[in-house]
Nucleic acid binder design. Structure first.
Lengths: 248, 248
DNA sequence: CGGCACATTGAAGGCCATCAACTATTGTGG
DNA sequence: CCACAATAGTTGATGGCCTTCAATGTGCCG
């Protein structure tokens, strides 16, 4: 594999792993072929920056594989993660040409990109893309509000437990399992990235991880591999309502 | 004026104060008349709850006048505000029948409501409502992410300064002025509500307000009326970039 | 092996929460 | 009309949680 920023991989949308969840999920074959005409793939390596906040961004994109983050930085360097982008998540805003956040690849990353102008024309004409985008944006807004509760009111221990529960759940759903009993997964974030997510310092993250290990709530193999012997017990520590909301 | 929860006020959409900013902003006259057929007004008094989190909510609505809040509450009573709804803002989520947050009137409030089912049918058929709703949701997501930075990384003093700046700005724009030099406005929130917005206790809010007063950054007349002699000086205290992002 | 990035652990201190007392304002009923 | 209670806000004292600064540990790769 070459080290070019831009890889021109040829993929058929029909085989795409995120076909049923991404912004194109609702498209009929006609709409899909129109999308297919304007799409191109880009790959990024761990740690690479996709765009800097304030820079021109003339595309929007879906994450195909890997994980990216959105972060804000204050003048004195304080950083807060404001988005965690998993496969099928959407980056960029139709109608805006300047990036509002730093977008960074925290793992190797492949994105399915659309130049902004053609994409905007397309959503104006194909309702299924616009509908799906609205749905996804509303989901993100809900996630952001959950995150606000975490940042504003949870203790360090609750924050760590919440993050582990979130990652465990999405990992389980990716493996087509339910988050129950014993689980294991690889953390896609460094301690510092976890701290940026949670509004903590990396030292506090490390201490709380050690504390959870001491208390038998988690086991660690290496730095990244986490084993959760009892998912319900971990959920108890998040401070969230036990009757996990059924919002339909 | 009666004290009924539900006021059947007759209003012509053409005269509506939020006509150009709300979810109906992009509607042509045909679409508007279809909206007009399914709308009704509801009024709430200060402190009244519009809906409780977890309750059935069979309408969506625009705030016509007054201010409402969205809050989340943890089992032990910790509360975090996750939305501040000003005139023209939208409440409720198409495709969801259960409220995810407590919605409360923090001032006397008038809302323009649409029963959910007809509204959903309508956005499926009139693209201008769906487009505007997407745009508004993206704006809310940006605001939520700004808010996350505040909650996760700002000091109490920066939080207070940020909140005052936000309110001052929106008050200025309501009066068709620019936020510059000397400003004055009424706080629409109690100290406790400010605390819930900022992820602080009401005592810390009170202390920081007193500190800002001591330092001459604000003057107070009564508890609620705030005078900002130098808006730029206050902005310095928010910790935000001075070159306030121009995101187009 | 040394160098580097990432992570853990320790010690000290500061910011904010907690608990508590007091003030100010408003509204109510005798 | 005043007494009184209720609500909202201020201020003080104390302590704890998390940050800060610092040293040490661990795995990986040239």
């Amino acid at each position: 594999m070459s080290h070019h920023d831009i890889e021109l991989l040829s993929h058929d949308c029909g085989d795409c792993p995120i076909r049923h969840r991404a912004v194109c999920a609702r498209c009929d074959s006609d709409e899909l072929s129109r999308l297919e005409q304007i799409k191109y793939y880009r790959s990024f390596q761990v740690g690479q920056t996709v765009v800097w906040s304030g820079d021109r961004m003339d595309f929007v994109a879906s994450v195909v594989s890997g994980i990216a983050t959105l972060t804000q930085t204050m003048e004195d360097g304080r950083r807060q993660m404001v988005g965690l982008l998993l496969p099928s998540d959407f980056v960029g805003r139709p109608g805006r040409s300047i990036a509002a956040y730093d977008v960074t690849a925290t793992t190797d990353l492949v994105m399915c990109c659309f130049r902004k102008k053609p994409f905007e024309d397309l959503i104006a004409r194909t309702p299924h893309v616009a509908q799906r985008l609205l749905e996804m944006t509303l989901d993100e807004l809900d996630a952001a509000r959950e995150w606000m509760l975490l940042l504003g009111r949870k203790t360090a221990r609750e924050k760590i437990a919440s993050l582990l529960a979130i990652i465990a759940r999405r990992d389980a759903s990716l493996k087509l399992r339910t988050a129950k009993g014993a689980l294991a997964f690889d953390l896609p974030l460094t301690r510092e990235e976890m701290a940026d997510y949670l509004g903590l310092t990396l030292e506090t993250v490390s201490r709380q991880m050690s504390a959870l290990k001491r208390d038998g709530m988690i086991q660690l193999e290496g730095k990244r591999h986490v084993i959760i012997p009892d998912f319900d017990a971990l959920t108890e520590l998040t401070g969230d309502d036990s009757d996990g909301g059924f919002l339909v």
